[in-house]
């Protein structure tokens, strides 16, 4: 069992938890993820690691309560325990293995979208610990959905907050903000690391391709086991089929087929919708007959 040491609500429906998981805390690095299954009937939920404390033996996760399992996870309190917590999974960020001198010369811009701010944070923190300065854009629809801003400010040289509705910081999406930094302010970046919704990563990559800035993205597709067994997380990168769980989760953003990934993410949308419906209406939604409740209905 894996104890919840801390629980915090970062924004409406977005939760942060510190989980006691000694083996994971000892061996994980920025860029990797864990799989959480909170009880016998829960789904295996992949979550990118947000932070870790090797001494305390704890790992920080951030998740949005969307589906049936994440909603139930959100109901857990400090002191309670998740049944399963496996990891670290996937590869650590390439940054970690780059020679420090080369990394020091590099101007890196991190672009974080929504809950994607959580996996960006440990990378920025790691860079700071190694003595490297980086910039970071945090984007969200509005002010309420900005998370980890204060934490990020402690580890990044410059933090730019962008909101679609202009309720806080720069008015516009992260791409508008990148354009502003590069084109208007004349900043130079050697590399962009973008983590957020697939659609955001797609458009960031379209822009950075144009700006000729190499870009890394972190993919979080549908997964079951997270160890290479099920192949549900497959995606096309540079014309080749890759498994996000063992070949990624980070890939060269200019090579990822984002449209295919977005379609694959729709896979269980209707089924997830069913789970919500079931919660509201009980077993009756399974009535059948009209066929509207069929799991393959789309």
């Amino acid at each position: 069992m894996y104890k919840i040491l801390k629980k915090e609500i970062l924004a409406p429906n977005i939760y942060l938890m510190d989980i006691e998981a000694k083996r994971v805390a000892k061996s994980c690095y920025p860029g990797q993820f864990v799989i959480v299954k909170m009880d016998e009937k829960g789904e295996r939920i992949p979550l990118t690691i947000c932070d870790y404390d090797r001494e305390k033996g704890s790992v920080t996760i951030v998740f949005q309560a969307l589906g049936s399992s994440t909603k139930r996870m959100a109901g857990y309190e400090e002191g309670e325990e998740f049944m399963d917590f496996a990891g670290p999974l996937g590869n650590r960020s390439e940054l970690i293995d780059e020679p420090s001198t080369e990394l020091h010369e590099k101007k890196i811009l991190f672009v974080a979208g929504g809950v994607g701010t959580a996996p960006v944070y440990p990378q920025v923190k790691w860079m700071k610990e190694q003595g490297h300065e980086v910039d970071c854009i945090i984007g969200a629809r509005n002010k309420d959905l900005i998370i980890l801003e204060e934490e990020m400010k402690k580890v990044a040289k410059n933090v730019y907050v962008a909101t679609d509705d202009g309720s806080y910081g720069f008015k516009g999406n992260v791409n508008d903000c990148i354009k502003d930094l590069v084109k208007t302010q004349g900043k130079h970046y050697d590399c962009v690391i973008a983590i957020g919704p697939v659609i955001m990563m797609k458009f960031v990559c379209l822009l950075t391709k144009e700006l000729k800035i190499p870009t890394i993205v972190s993919m979080n597709p549908i997964m079951v086991d997270g160890t290479g067994m099920c192949g549900a997380c497959r995606l096309t990168v540079g014309g080749k089929v890759k498994f996000a769980c063992v070949d990624g989760p980070e890939f060269d953003g200019h090579l990822v087929d984002f449209d295919e990934s977005m379609k694959r993410q729709q896979m269980y949308k209707t089924v997830e919708g069913r789970a919500v419906l079931k919660e509201k209406e009980g077993e009756t939604h399974k009535g059948g007959g009209c066929g509207c409740s069929d799991p393959t209905d789309r």
Partner: peptide, 18 residues
């Protein structure tokens, strides 16, 4: 795996299967 390990056939489990 969805069906056997995660018991998707049983509606009381969260894991879906198309």
């Amino acid at each position: 795996t969805r069906n056997n390990l995660m018991k998707a056939f049983d509606s009381s489990y969260d894991t879906p299967i198309a």
